[in-house]
């Protein structure tokens, strides 16, 4: 996979197929990006599991924190890593010990580790780096258009108004533009320096 530019179909396929998401580095602080993403993905019907050893014994929006991936105790489809690029590899290594393996490893906006990605891909796991699943879900459903963001999609179909807990259709026609090359480059440079 070319990690500098993902085809919409790749992202769409992942978000349409995964049901459970373990979020490593999930924060209970409600101004942190991980909190935003956790809450949104839960509202869009994903089975969310917060992973953060610092908050075991507490809950995030009603879901109990676990200390590590191996403490989840059931299969998960996707691992969403909210850690800096330099902390990615140990999480991926732990993910590779799970049985069954996760189908997807997703690294958050600003996080990129090409060596860790290669390791995961070598055992058939799909990898996304330097993207936010909330932003991508909002973009492909066009819900993010409320904020003036270029969804890079079109549709002539009448879609229902989004309500709480509703899964949205991500199957819209894709459009060009919305270059992400510069932010990808910045994340890559940061991970190489660290």
């Amino acid at each position: 996979m070319n990690h500098d530019a993902y085809p919409d179909n790749y992202i769409r396929g992942i978000l349409n197929s995964v049901k459970s998401i373990a979020m490593v580095g999930a924060s209970p602080v409600n101004v942190r990006p991980s909190y935003f993403a956790f809450k949104y993905l839960m509202q869009r019907g994903y089975d969310m599991i917060p992973v953060n050893p610092g908050h075991v014994g507490k809950e995030l929006l009603g879901k109990p924190f676990v200390a590590s991936l191996s403490d989840i105790g059931r299969p998960v489809d996707m691992i969403d890593i909210f850690r800096n690029s330099s902390h990615i590899m140990p999480v991926v290594e732990e993910a590779l010990t799970l049985d069954p393996l996760p189908k997807v490893i997703w690294m958050q906006l600003g996080a990129r580790d090409d060596a860790a990605a290669a390791k995961a891909e070598s055992v058939g796991i799909k990898v996304v780096m330097n993207r936010c699943p909330k932003i991508e879900y909002g973009r492909l459903s066009s819900e993010i258009s409320w904020m003036g963001v270029n969804s890079r999609t079109l549709s002539s179909k009448r879609a229902p108004a989004p309500t709480q807990g509703m899964r949205l259709s991500l199957n819209r026609m894709s459009v060009g533009g919305g270059n992400t090359a510069a932010s990808d480059r910045a994340a890559k440079n940061k991970s190489e320096q660290s």
Partner: peptide, 25 residues
């Protein structure tokens, strides 16, 4: 869904707009 890219005139008519969710306008 294909990743085929529409042209400028198509975007000028369609980008950002879809039928109104409530009325179908």
């Amino acid at each position: 869904m294909s990743d085929r890219l529409p042209g400028f005139s198509t975007l000028a008519v369609h980008a950002g707009a879809q039928p109104d969710p409530t009325t179908g306008a």
